[in-house]
Simulated scan of single mutants.
Amino acid sequence: MNHRFPRWLGVITMLLAIIGVLGGFIAAAIPAVITQGQQLVANAPDYLNRLKDHSSFVGQLNDRFHLIDKLQGAVNSPGSGSLDGILGAGRAVFGAVTNTVIVLVLTAYFLSDMPRIRALAYRMVPHTRRPRAILMGDDILAKVGGYVLGNLVISAIAGALTFGWLMIFSIPYAALLSIMVALLDLVPVVGSTIAGLIVAAAALTVSLPLCLCTIAFFVIYRFLEDYFLVPRIIGRAVEVPALATVVAVLIGGALLGIIGALVAIPVAAAVLLIIREVWIPRLDKA
């Protein structure tokens, strides 16, 4: 709307962009997954021989942690049959697709009807206090928008740094993995951790030292993201101090897990705004 798009056209443009990104990611991921799966099946005998080789590093890990026995136990356990596995994977895929469609539909409805929702919410406030409530409510909505934009910027940084790391060390599927890291980084607390494990598994196909270096890279990046990027970028966008940003994410994650960490910073921005505009003036007049 800032670029003079009608609201309906802006909503459609945004949804098409999201669908295009997700569709492109899936289209790029499916051939890669099939190829990697075929390579895994082809290399399975070699991996098994390495596990049985007591002189190799992997064989020593097997001797210590009994990896083959645990793998055979998982395969032979009840409910681990191929049919159950296929049904479980099908349910997971169907659930993910359904949830994505629901989120997109709800997003479209909320964005399309936001002016009416906003007007109805403000009419619930007494008329004498309505102008101040409108100012505070619009400020809170602007901070939420800044939080979403800051989150996207941090995810883009994560994807770009991952792409550079993968290209430097010739780890396969650099573009695909970097896009996956950027998407998973949108999920607070666990997103970047899961992405790091997947990228480390891809690096393991090259060499074990590179896998360990990749794990160290993601540990360092996670530390910098949590304690430098998030306070600097998101905290500045929502006008929340860096210390309050870190504390809010820690408290939100401890109380409500992923959802708590996701909404912690916007809630902290709203609370600070209410304290600054309502509570402190009342204390000054008391």
Score class of each variant (00 low, 15 high):
residue 5 F to V: 07
residue 6 P to L: 07
residue 7 R to G: 01
residue 12 I to R: 13
residue 22 L to W: 01
residue 22 L to E: 06
residue 23 G to D: 10
residue 25 F to L: 13
residue 26 I to S: 10
residue 31 P to V: 06
residue 33 V to I: 04
residue 33 V to F: 01
residue 35 T to G: 11
residue 37 G to W: 06
residue 45 P to Q: 12
residue 47 Y to I: 06
residue 48 L to P: 03
residue 53 D to G: 07
residue 54 H to T: 15
residue 58 V to N: 02
residue 60 Q to M: 15
residue 64 R to M: 07
residue 65 F to L: 12
residue 73 G to T: 11
residue 76 N to L: 13
residue 80 S to D: 08
residue 80 S to F: 09
residue 85 G to Q: 02
residue 90 G to H: 03
residue 91 R to G: 06
residue 91 R to L: 13
residue 94 F to S: 15
residue 97 V to K: 10
residue 98 T to R: 15
residue 101 V to K: 02
residue 115 P to E: 03
residue 117 I to D: 06
residue 118 R to F: 10
residue 121 A to E: 06
residue 124 M to E: 08
residue 126 P to G: 09
residue 128 T to Y: 08
residue 129 R to D: 13
residue 136 M to Y: 07
residue 138 D to T: 12
residue 142 A to P: 03
residue 144 V to P: 00
residue 144 V to M: 09
residue 150 G to F: 00
residue 158 A to V: 00
residue 170 S to H: 11
residue 171 I to H: 07
residue 174 A to S: 12
residue 177 L to E: 01
residue 177 L to G: 01
residue 180 M to K: 13
residue 181 V to K: 12
residue 186 L to C: 11
residue 187 V to Q: 10
residue 188 P to I: 01
residue 189 V to D: 02
residue 191 G to R: 01
residue 194 I to D: 01
residue 196 G to H: 04
residue 196 G to D: 02
residue 200 A to M: 12
residue 203 A to P: 11
residue 204 L to M: 14
residue 206 V to G: 11
residue 208 L to Y: 12
residue 213 C to A: 14
residue 216 A to M: 13
residue 223 F to T: 08
residue 228 F to Y: 11
residue 232 R to G: 01
residue 232 R to M: 04
residue 234 I to W: 13
residue 236 R to D: 00
residue 239 E to C: 07
residue 242 A to M: 05
residue 242 A to D: 09
residue 243 L to I: 12
residue 249 V to M: 05
residue 250 L to H: 00
residue 253 G to D: 09
residue 259 I to H: 08
residue 262 L to S: 08
residue 264 A to P: 03
residue 266 P to H: 03
residue 267 V to R: 02
residue 268 A to E: 02
residue 269 A to S: 15
residue 270 A to H: 09
residue 270 A to G: 15
residue 276 R to V: 02
residue 283 L to W: 04
residue 286 A to S: 14
